[in-house]
C-alpha cells in the first residue's frame, strides 16, 4: 500500500467521523442527504460481499466492516433516531436517487470485469459510488445555511476521491502498468462532480466567508 492510498482511506474515514460527530454532538442531520447515505449503504454492501470469499489483509477486512457499519448507523440515525430524524432536511432532499440504481446495474451487466455475481455487483458498486454524491450536492445547493461540519464532510469525501486518483497514477508507474478502465473512469467522473463544490469551498475558506453554493 502506498502513501496516497492510505491518505485516501484515512480521509474517507475522517469524513465519516466528522459526519457522525455532527450527528451525535449536535443531534442534527440538517444539510445531510439521506438519499446519498442510503446509496452508500448499497455501495458498501454490494462491493464488500467478497468479505466472505476473499481475504486481502486485516486492514482491508476491518475497513470494510467499518464502512458498512458506519453507513448503516448514519441511515439509522437519520431515519429512526427520535431527535435526529426531526432535523432531516426532507423537503430539500428531493433527488430521485432510486433512478440512479437501474442504469448503474445495466452498465454493470454490460461492462463487468468478469461475468460472475460478485464481479457484476462489484462493478455496480463502483458505478453507483461515482454518482452517489449527487443528492448531497443538490441539497447543499438548496441549503441557505451550510454548517462547517457539513462542508468539511463533503470536502473530505471529495479529497478521498482525489487521493485515490493520485494512488492509481502512482501504482500504474510503480506496479503493474495495467490500465483499469472501470475504477479509473468511474473515479474520474466521481471526482469531477466535486469540482464545483471544491471551487466554492476553497474560495469561502480563503476569504473567511460562509460557504454558499450558487443554485
Amino acid at each position: 500500500m502506498n502513501i496516497f492510498r492510505l491518505a485516501g482511506d484515512m480521509t474517507h474515514l475522517l469524513s465519516i467521523v466528522v459526519l457522525l460527530l455532527k450527528i451525535r454532538t449536535t443531534k442534527s442531520c440538517a444539510g445531510i442527504s439521506l438519499k446519498t447515505q442510503e446509496l452508500y449503504v448499497i455501495v458498501f454492501i454490494t462491493r464488500y460481499l467478497d468479505l466472505f470469499t476473499r481475504y486481502v489483509s486485516f486492514y482491508n477486512t476491518a475497513m470494510k466492516l467499518v464502512f458498512i457499519g458506519t453507513s448503516v448507523a448514519i441511515v439509522w440515525y437519520m431515519r429512526l433516531h427520535k431527535v435526529v430524524k426531526q432535523t432531516y432536511s426532507r423537503d430539500e432532499d428531493t433527488f430521485k436517487h432510486y433512478l440512479l440504481i437501474p442504469p448503474c446495474f445495466i452498465l454493470a451487466l454490460l461492462i463487468p470485469l468478469e461475468f460472475t455475481v460478485t464481479e457484476i455487483l462489484w462493478s455496480f458498486s463502483i458505478y453507483l459510488e461515482a454518482v452517489a454524491i449527487l443528492p448531497q450536492l443538490l441539497l447543499l445547493q438548496r441549503s441557505s445555511n451550510i454548517d462547517n461540519l457539513t462542508g468539511s464532510y463533503v470536502f473530505l469525501l471529495g479529497a478521498y476521491r482525489a487521493l485515490y486518483i493520485v494512488n492509481w497514477v502512482y501504482r500504474f508507474f510503480t506496479e503493474t502498468h495495467k490500465i483499469r478502465w472501470i475504477p479509473w473512469i468511474s473515479g474520474l467522473v466521481q471526482t469531477a462532480l466535486y469540482a464545483d463544490f471544491f471551487y466554492y469551498y476553497i474560495k469561502s475558506w480563503k476569504n473567511h466567508e460562509k460557504l454558499r453554493l450558487p443554485a
Binding site: 492510498r5 470485469l113 483499469r180
Partner: peptide, 10 residues
Amino acid sequence: RELMEGHDEL
C-alpha cells in the same frame, strides 16, 4: 488465484 485488478482497494 491472483487478485482481480483493484480488488485490494476499498
